[in-house]
Simulated scan of single mutants.
Amino acid sequence: MSACITKELSCPGCGAVNKSRMWVEIDASADPEQREQILNETLFCWECPDCGYRAQMVYPCLYHDKERGFLVCLSPAGRTQQVIEAEQRHPALAGLKKRLVLTPAELKEKVMIFESGLNDVALEMVKLALQELTERKQQMKVEKAFFLTQSEELDYLGFSMFLRGEEKPVYQGVRLEVYEKSLRAAERVDFQESGFQLVDSALARTLLEQ
C-alpha cells in the first residue's frame, strides 16, 4: 500500500508558500505511475507554481515490490529512525531483499537491477572493477557509476561512469560471463541478508578483499 503526505514548502526563488505532495511509501504494483517517475527521474523534481523555480526535493521514501521480492529505502541522511521504523512496519516481509540508498539515482538503479533479476552485490563488484579500469584509462577519478542495461541477446551489461568535473558519462560494458564470475565470488563471501543494507562500492571492496 502506498502513502502520500502533503507539506507546505517555501520557494527559494520567490518565497511563495505552496502545498506539495510527497510519496513516503510506494507500492510498485499499486502505483505504476510513481514507478515510472522514479525511472525517468521526475518523482523528486519540484516546481514552484508561482515563479517556475525548479529544484530536486529529496526526502525519505520506501519503495516495495512484493512480486519481485525487494524493498528499497531512500534515506538521504543514511540509517536514521525512518529506516528503523520501515523495518518495524514490514516484519512479514523478512524474506525480501532490503536495501538502503542515499540518492534518487541509487533508488532508480536498485529498481532496475532487481527488475532485471540481477544480484546487486555481484554488480557492485563488476562496477568496482570497471571503475578502476576507467580511471586508469581516462586518468580521472570516477565519482559515480550506475548500472544501465542488460542484454542476453548481445551478451552485454552496460554501465555509465561519471568522471569528476564532467557532466556527460563515459559508457562501459562487459560480457555476461564477467557478471557470472562476480556472482560466484559474491556467493562465496560472508554476506548476510539482514535488514536494510547499503550495498555499494565500499561493500564490494570489502567483500573482494575477503
Rank of each mutant, 00 (worst) to 15 (best):
Y63K: 04
H64I: 05
K66T: 13
R68Q: 13
G69D: 01
G69F: 09
F70M: 04
F70V: 07
L71W: 10
L71H: 14
L71K: 13
L71T: 01
V72C: 03
V72T: 11
C73H: 13
C73F: 15
L74R: 07
L74H: 07
S75W: 10
S75L: 10
S75A: 15
P76D: 11
P76K: 10
P76H: 11
A77L: 13
A77E: 14
A77S: 13
A77G: 09
G78H: 11
R79Y: 14
R79Q: 09
R79F: 13
T80H: 06
Q81Y: 08
Q81R: 13
Q82H: 10
Q82A: 15
V83F: 10
I84K: 14
E85Q: 15
E85R: 15
E85D: 15
A86E: 03
Q88H: 13
R89Q: 12
R89N: 12
H90M: 15
A92V: 13
A92M: 12
L93T: 09
L93S: 10
A94P: 00
A94M: 10
G95Q: 06
L96R: 09
L96C: 11
L96T: 13
K97N: 04
K98D: 14
K98G: 12
R99M: 08
R99T: 05
R99N: 08
R99W: 02
L100V: 03
L100D: 03
L100F: 06
L100R: 06
V101S: 06
L102M: 14
T103W: 07
T103R: 15
P104A: 01
P104T: 02
A105W: 02
A105H: 03
A105T: 03
E106K: 00
E106I: 00
E106C: 05
E106T: 00
L107K: 10
L107I: 12
K108Q: 07
E109R: 03
E109S: 03
K110W: 01
M112A: 06
I113M: 12
F114K: 08
S116I: 02
S116W: 01
G117F: 00
G117M: 05
G117D: 03
G117A: 06
L118N: 04
L118A: 04
L118F: 04
N119Q: 06
V121D: 05
A122R: 06
L123Y: 01
L123E: 03
E124D: 06
E124H: 02
E124I: 04
E124A: 02
M125E: 05
V126Y: 07
V126P: 01
K127E: 04
K127I: 06
L128Q: 07
L128A: 09
L128N: 07
A129I: 15
A129M: 11
A129K: 11
L130I: 13
L130M: 14
Q131D: 02
Q131C: 12
